[in-house]
Design a binder for these strands. Structure first.
Lengths: 211, 211
DNA sequence: GACTGATGTAGAACGTGTTACAAGTCTAGA
DNA sequence: TCTAGACTTGTAACACGTTCTACATCAGTC
């Protein structure tokens, strides 16, 4: 499925590849349709239902075109995840997070997001599995997701939309919280934790880390 | 690759399936050969090189037999991981972990294991990716791995081979440390962290959690 | 308006995980 | 020893991610 060993393989220069912005209007439109189709299929049937032929058909592009835009299924799903997360970041920039303490605010933000994901279990399963399965070639998209998450938590920590300077220590804490959140999400997706467990495990982590 | 939706599919009763113990001597032997072949192929070429036909050939069993023992590639790899981890647990039971503080002892244990994994990057990549990609049907094997890790950390925390009663709080801390360790391992496998980063991120987590 | 290179389309083809099947082999019990 | 049933084997077939190829279309340039 993934081949780390092969060379860059693409000798052609100007592939639209992945950038969300840039390209003609028609291209941005196609990209949007592809990601919409991905989300829609994932929401219905999870990871397995996101079949490249099905995505291409629903997005009304040829299979080759799909692969020109997203070089693999994993890229596709992680890009979809990145797009969704970016929306959240934009929202979180609008106003301050409610809550009196950093703990409360972080829990507010993460729980809100967790519940949103839990409303669409299939979609979440698809996105989380893809994220976890991603290899080296997906570094860019993964990083984008990580940055979104970090930004949102940092904002919640400080309680203001402007993400000021975070100290080394704060950055470390945020990273750990992200790790725990993702792990919990995986456990939930794979049925090893229920919704309560997820909230509790994050709550414990935040409490231990912020004391 | 994975289908959660299908029925149990096996109507026959006495499948050897997965249990490491039980079955005839020949069966235990076959199981061992299969896991050995898996590890060997993974060590050479990582996840992609563990091809079911190749495993079957190297283990000198038919493809159908391989699937009777391990119902999917993911089961196979996670079982291999579980076997390796179990060995570690057995070793850790033999004598007390060196180190004067819980922090030191935990770092000792995790770093030792981390370095062992880093010596075989391809193998680690294969095992970690499989672990992360596992779905509901692999719960049993995953749990086995989680238990091993928890046990080892608990022992290190207390400094004695006998894992006495762990408090709720300790259990929570151990879980978080496991999460961070796994996340770091993934980041390392996918080239987003180097070896130093892995150690540091765990060190920070342990320090923050044990203070 | 014709030419050219990039982009898109349709569909075949290939590789690997997984399943299905027919026939051989081994084991326990009569 | 013979037989029934489970277990193995070898092999074909299928599904889906991915690649490849031949042709159509479109945008920009002369």
């Amino acid at each position: 499925m993934t081949s780390v060993s092969t060379e860059p393989r693409d000798t052609d220069g100007p592939t639209p590849a992945t950038p969300p912005t840039g390209g003609s209007a028609a291209q941005r439109e196609r990209r949007r349709r592809i990601l919409d189709a991905t989300i829609s299929l994932a929401a219905e049937g999870g990871f397995d239902a996101v079949q490249m032929r099905a995505v291409a058909e629903q997005a009304e592009v040829a299979l080759g075109t799909l692969y020109r835009y997203f070089p693999s299924k994993i890229h596709l799903l992680v890009s979809a995840l990145a797009r969704e997360f970016t929306k959240d970041v934009d929202r979180s920039a609008i106003r301050a997070t409610p809550g009196d303490t950093a703990h409360e605010r972080i829990m507010y933000v993460l729980n809100r997001r967790t519940r949103a994901l839990q409303k669409q279990p299939k979609l979440t399963e698809a996105l989380v599995r893809a994220f976890m399965f991603a290899d080296q070639s997906v570094t860019g998209e993964i990083h984008e997701v990580g940055t979104s998450l970090t930004t949102v938590i940092a904002r919640a920590m400080h309680g203001t939309p402007d993400h000021g300077e975070v100290t080394e220590e704060e950055a470390a804490i945020i990273r750990i919280i992200s790790d725990v959140w993702l792990s919990a999400l995986i456990s939930w997706v794979t049925g090893r934790m229920d919704e309560k467990d997820v909230e509790k495990s994050i709550d414990v982590a935040v409490r231990l880390l912020l004391r």
